Computed example of a mutant assay.
Amino acid sequence: MEKPIRILHVLGTLNRGGAETMIMNVYRNIDRSKIQFDFVIHTKEKCDYDDEIIKLGGNIYSFPRYLGKNHFKYKKAWDIFFNSHQEYKIVHGHMRSTAAIYLKIAKKHGLITIAHSHSTASRGNKVEQFVKNIMQFPIRYIADYLFACSDDAGKWLFGNNVIKKNNYRVIKNAIDAEKYVFNEAKRNEMRKALGIEDKFVVGHTGSFSYPKNHKFLIDFFYQVQKKNKNVILLLVGDGELRPQIEKQINSLDIKDKVILTGIVPNVNDYMQVMDVFVFPSMFEGLGIVTIEAQAAGLLCIVADTVPKEAFITNLIEKISLSEGLEVWADKVLKCTKYKKRNTFKEIRSAGFDVVEEANVFEAFYEKQLICNKNREVISL
């Protein structure tokens, strides 16, 4: 039996972030007898998806974090890796900060290279952002293929003219849409378990990190609960800023009105619990959770930083963060009465159902290695 093509994906970690979730959605649905995914990550800590990847037949390799002072050691590690692992013919880079380094080395070893943009800004303070942006700039000239989750994300990382290039493509962050279809029995079961059967539930899913803007979220909810005493805020996720957010919740004396679930494997079930989804992000490459929320039939109030590609149904509305807390609170309080509906067909017809998107990935990888023997860059 012919061995599957092995694709090497490069990331920082394998936790439940947007890029990682997208890759795992595809990995679960791709024909793994033909295509297998392996991963290079930049941590030695156990990650959320490690066990599942091993179970699906993937390999995970840990690299040292890039610190600047270990520049030559980092480059050498990649050289050694590609010399030792000649089974790889394609490297798919999702980690931007060092992509100009590892993709250049991959090309030297004869690999086809893909750079994938998942964001529209760099994290960190101004100095860190400046350094990252300088390091990332050459990617557009190094990678064979330039992928992005939205045109905004593509233009941010690869330049405004990227959309005219024949090696550029928007790859939709597809989801297992069927899992999110509104299910009243599951909703009632989950709400009963949480003890919030008669509550109006404002929900949010995302890592507790700067881009997700939890501070604004808590301040906004404080205004909501002053106007409606029967509300609950349900926060799904975890992250480095959680201690600060918990401190903010306590200082506003709303601890009894906020549920923090931490990281959960069944986000789809928790979305059944929600009555409205709120997403005040500072910046987003796409905002995959807004797609999930629409798939669950939820009304979504989102910041105008969310790219146009996320606006699939008429359930999603954008507001500028500059509008202020009162405007956001009033908008959400108008969402108390609406009937949830099945949006599966809309999600699928917009190209966000992962079963179809997995076929796109599979066809691309196979075309590169089976139909493109000369390893030339093929127009997308």
Rank of each mutant, 00 (worst) to 15 (best):
V181G: 07
Y88F: 08
I175P: 08
I134R: 15
V377R: 05
T313R: 02
N266Q: 12
G297N: 03
K89L: 12
A19K: 11
L11P: 05
M190Y: 04
K108V: 02
D256Q: 13
R6E: 10
V278G: 01
T21R: 09
G68Y: 13
A100Y: 12
A174L: 02
I35G: 08
G285H: 07
V289A: 01
S150V: 02
D151C: 11
I347F: 11
I196Q: 01
S33F: 02
D151R: 13
I35D: 02
I53Y: 07
K227D: 03
F39G: 10
I30Y: 04
T336P: 05
I316A: 06
L67D: 09
T205L: 12
R96W: 11
V26P: 03
P4I: 02
H214P: 01
F137C: 10
A193S: 15
K73L: 13
D176E: 15
I288E: 05
P307S: 09
A363P: 00
Q248H: 07
W78E: 02
I35E: 02
H42E: 12
K373F: 07
M135G: 01
D353K: 12
K55Q: 13
I370F: 06
F352I: 07
L14E: 09
G18S: 09
V273M: 08
A77Q: 11
I263S: 14
V264Y: 06
H109V: 07
R187H: 06
K337G: 04
H118C: 15
G159F: 15
H9R: 13
K75F: 02
G154Y: 06
H9D: 11
E323W: 05
K89M: 13
G110W: 11
F72Y: 14
V236Y: 00
L146E: 12
E20K: 01
F37I: 02
L241E: 14
A358Q: 13
N167M: 13
E309G: 00
V327F: 08
D144H: 15
W156I: 05
A310G: 02
G17Y: 10
D304A: 02
I259N: 12
A193Y: 10
L252M: 12
I105D: 05
K172W: 07
A99W: 14
A329V: 11
R6C: 08
K179F: 14
D304S: 04
Y365R: 08
D275S: 03
D253T: 10
H94D: 14
I41H: 05
I163G: 07
K247L: 09
N314Q: 06
I232N: 00
V278L: 00
D269W: 10
Y222I: 09
V306Y: 04
R6F: 10
G285Q: 04
